[in-house]
Design a protein around this nucleic acid. Structure first.
Lengths: 223, 223
DNA sequence: CTTCTCCAAATTATAGATAATTTTTAATTC
DNA sequence: GAATTAAAAATTATCTATAATTTGGAGAAG
């Protein structure tokens, strides 16, 4: 019987709710009522409350004792904070991963970049983007670091999905390609600094390319 | 009636258990049986389970579905990982905090350093050490970043308490003083790089001062 | 007479206790 | 050593109490 990897109801609920929050289906400030959620999942409120604790730790929900749980708000200031944390930690991860990267991994990362460039919508792009970052960072073999990066990446994705209003237009990810090139040539430090800049851009106002000609999005949302 | 700040039983339990784990009273790998803990705190196991989720997120406990929760193990590799993460994030925090630091804050941090130097035991030293780091970083005003650093600091403290076997001998914290000096003189970048080196030392083998003459501790444990 | 405010009752939701069920682990027997 | 059974512990359900919010109404002010 194809059974999901997670066994407990609580973990399943937290995964589903996290996904909904990230995708923007549950908007910031919304109250998460344990009885309603319990009813939806056909369980009692006990595992729901455990799921809440995990969401709280991930920064996706905020709990006030005796007053309930709400979807965490996130303003631009928080997004920048998350982006800077992510940049700092991804640089660290890449520095350790670099020596373990194989051509096969870099090929897979390049393929992920291509898929991102060809993505039909923002969700497909984000999936490919996350795969790229995971591929080049996972070989650092530092599980706690990778888990932290994952949570931060989710927060970034939440911003991406919320900020993206207009239709998706194909784009070419030059940063990803520059990172891969540097890695292939053994210049890990350069790859790390491109990665740092790349991630830090999230939530920052893009350079006005020309006076009056502002990009369609008011803030850089990729990464 | 003097009531503790936290309202829920779960948060109280998680704080107490976290403290015990950090102080080494609960050793790595020990099973945390919810019924026993519930009995000790005079509650049911429901809030205990919620406390477990928080400990899990903090990296202090590990839960295997249907098999219970254990105190997280931590080998030297994990300590180094935590130290490097902490270094990366504290550098980020200090860069943002620097511009908001006041002479009053720096004076308080210097006082914390003095108290650390005069500490009678390792717990007093750690309390002062944590105060120093918190004082100079808190003005960055990035709550998520500070919360992450706090969790990482707890993991470092856990290593410190576990590694410290012999009696406590007074020491002078030159790094803290160098950081404060640089901050007072407005050289934030230099302060940050001293801080980075300072924290990264945790869990690393110290330079053998002389052949055969190894330091009393096999690894650097302060920070 | 209308409107605003303040207080109390009723409703709703959260937090926790107790109980039932399932799963894992240990033990004993073949 | 394998298999069956018994004990223990984890997960979840149901139930209760307590705290928070809302609603309704009385009284005062405009």
């Amino acid at each position: 019987m194809a059974k999901e990897p997670e066994d407990t109801i609580a973990s399943r609920i937290s995964r589903v709710l996290a996904d909904r929050i990230v995708r923007g289906e549950l908007s910031a400030g919304l109250r998460l009522r344990q009885d309603h959620i319990a009813e939806e999942f056909g369980t009692s409120h006990v595992p729901v409350r455990e799921a809440f604790r995990r969401l709280e730790a991930q920064g996706l929900a905020i709990s006030e004792p005796r007053r309930g749980v709400r979807v965490a708000s996130f303003d631009l200031k928080e997004v920048r904070e998350v982006a800077e944390m992510r940049a700092a930690l991804e640089v660290l991860a890449l520095r350790h991963a670099a020596k373990h990267l194989t051509p096969a991994i870099l090929d897979a990362a390049e393929e992920a970049t291509r898929e991102g460039d060809a993505a039909a919508d923002v969700h497909a792009w984000e999936e490919a983007n996350r795969r790229f970052h995971t591929l080049i960072l996972a070989p650092c073999n530092m599980s706690r670091l990778l888990a932290s990066i994952d949570d931060l990446h989710a927060a970034c994705a939440r911003f991406l999905f919320s900020a993206w209003r207009s239709g998706w237009e194909k784009r070419t990810d030059h940063d990803h390609r520059a990172i891969l090139l540097a890695l292939r040539q053994g210049r890990a430090d350069e790859a790390a600094s491109i990665l740092e800049r790349h991630v830090q851009w999230i939530g920052r106002a893009p350079k006005s390319t020309q006076k009056g000609a502002v990009a369609p999005d008011a803030f850089a949302i990729v990464g």
